[in-house]
C-alpha cells in the first residue's frame, strides 16, 4: 500500500510538468524525430499533400478529357499510370483523386475524433446512469440505416461536399466513442485520478488534462484505422450520389472502378491501390511514432 501511495506521489509530481504542455509537446516532438519510420511517414504525407495541392500543375492532361479513340493503354512515358477505358490519363485521375480523398480522410476523421473522444470520455468518466443512457444512444445510432440518413441529408441540403465530411464523420465517431469510453472506465479508478479528485480538481479539468492524454495513444491508432475506412466509404457515398461527381475522381471511386478492370486493364486497379497503400503505410508509421512519443509513461525511460 505504501509502495502504491509512493508511486502515486511521484506521478502526482509529474502531472504539473505535463500540464505545462509546452515541454511535453516539445519532448514528444523530439522523440518523434528520433523515430526514423515516423519521420519517413511524415515526409511522405507532406509530399502527398503537396502533390494534391499542386495537382493542376503536375497533371499533363485535363482531368475531364476523354480520348475514346485511344481507350485503355498500359503505362508508358506519356501516361505514367496508363489510361482508363475512356482514354483518360490515370496519373491525372490519381493525383486529382488524392485531393478529395485526403480531405475526406482528414476532415471526416477530425469530426469523428472530436465527437467520439469527448462523448466517450464523458460517458466513461461520469459513469452510472449517464453512461448507461449515452451508451444506449450509441447503440441506437449504430443500428439506424445509414443510407436513409444520407438520402435525406441530400434531399434537405442538396449535393454539397461539406455534407460528405459530416456524413462520414457522423458514422465513424461511434466506434471511437466506445473505445475511448472503455479506456476511460479502466483509467478512472487508477490511483492518480482518484488522488486528483480528492484534491478537488474539477471534473472537466480531470477529463481534459488527465484522461484524454492517457487515451491519446489508443485514439491515434484508431485514427489510423479510421482514415482508410472513410476514404473507401466515400466511394459508397458516391454511389448514393453524395460523394465526388464524375469526371472528378477519388481514390475510393478509382479503386472500385478498377476492380471491374482487374483482369482486362490491371493498371486501372494497381496504381490507385498502391497510391492509397503508400499513403496509409506512411500514416500508419507516423501514427505509431506519435503514439510512442505521446505516451505519458515513456518519459520515465
Amino acid at each position: 500500500m505504501t509502495e502504491a501511495a509512493l508511486k502515486t506521489t511521484t506521478l502526482m509530481n509529474q502531472t504539473p510538468e505535463i500540464e505545462k504542455g509546452r515541454s511535453l509537446w516539445e519532448d514528444a516532438f523530439n522523440r518523434l524525430l528520433k523515430n526514423k519510420m515516423a519521420v519517413i511517414g511524415l515526409c511522405y504525407l507532406i509530399f502527398q499533400t503537396l502533390v494534391a495541392i499542386f495537382a493542376p500543375w503536375l497533371a499533363r492532361f485535363p482531368y475531364e478529357e476523354t480520348n475514346l479513340a485511344l481507350g485503355a493503354v498500359p503505362p508508358d512515358w506519356v501516361h505514367f499510370f496508363g489510361t482508363d477505358d475512356l482514354g483518360r490519363d490515370m496519373f491525372t485521375r490519381v493525383i486529382y483523386g488524392s485531393r478529395i480523398s485526403l480531405m475526406v480522410g482528414i476532415l471526416a476523421t477530425a469530426v469523428s475524433v472530436l465527437i467520439g473522444v469527448l462523448y466517450g470520455a464523458v460517458a466513461g468518466y461520469v459513469g452510472g446512469r449517464t453512461d448507461d443512457i449515452l451508451m444506449r444512444i450509441l447503440e441506437i445510432l449504430y443500428s439506424l440505416p445509414f443510407i436513409f440518413f444520407v438520402i435525406i441529408l441530400m434531399v434537405l441540403f442538396g449535393r454539397n461536399i461539406y455534407l460528405l465530411f459530416v456524413a462520414l464523420g457522423l458514422i465513424e465517431w461511434l466506434t471511437m466513442a466506445r473505445i475511448v469510453r472503455g479506456q476511460v472506465v479502466s483509467l478512472k479508478k487508477v490511483e492518480y485520478i482518484d488522488a486528483a479528485r480528492s484534491m478537488g480538481v474539477g471534473h472537466v479539468k480531470i477529463i481534459l488534462d488527465h484522461l484524454i492524454p492517457n487515451v491519446l495513444g489508443t485514439v491515434i491508432i484508431y485514427v489510423t484505422l479510421t482514415v482508410p475506412g472513410v476514404i473507401l466509404e466515400e466511394a459508397f457515398l458516391s454511389f448514393l450520389g453524395l460523394g465526388v461527381q464524375e469526371p472528378m475522381s477519388s481514390w475510393g471511386t478509382l479503386i472500385s472502378d478498377g476492380v471491374a478492370a482487374m483482369q482486362t486493364y490491371p493498371w486501372m486497379l494497381i496504381f490507385p491501390c498502391v497510391t492509397l497503400m503508400l499513403a496509409l503505410l506512411a500514416l500508419n508509421f507516423l501514427g505509431d511514432g506519435l503514439r510512442d512519443a505521446l505516451d505519458p509513461r515513456a518519459s520515465k525511460d
Binding site: 476492380v259 486497379l269 491501390c273 497503400m277 496509409l280
Partner: peptide
Amino acid sequence: NSARDYLSMAFSMLGICLPSFV
C-alpha cells in the same frame, strides 16, 4: 520499432488498404 514490428504492421495495413471488394 523493430523489423518484426514494422513488417507485421505493414502486412496488417495491407488488409486495411485492400478492401473486401478487391
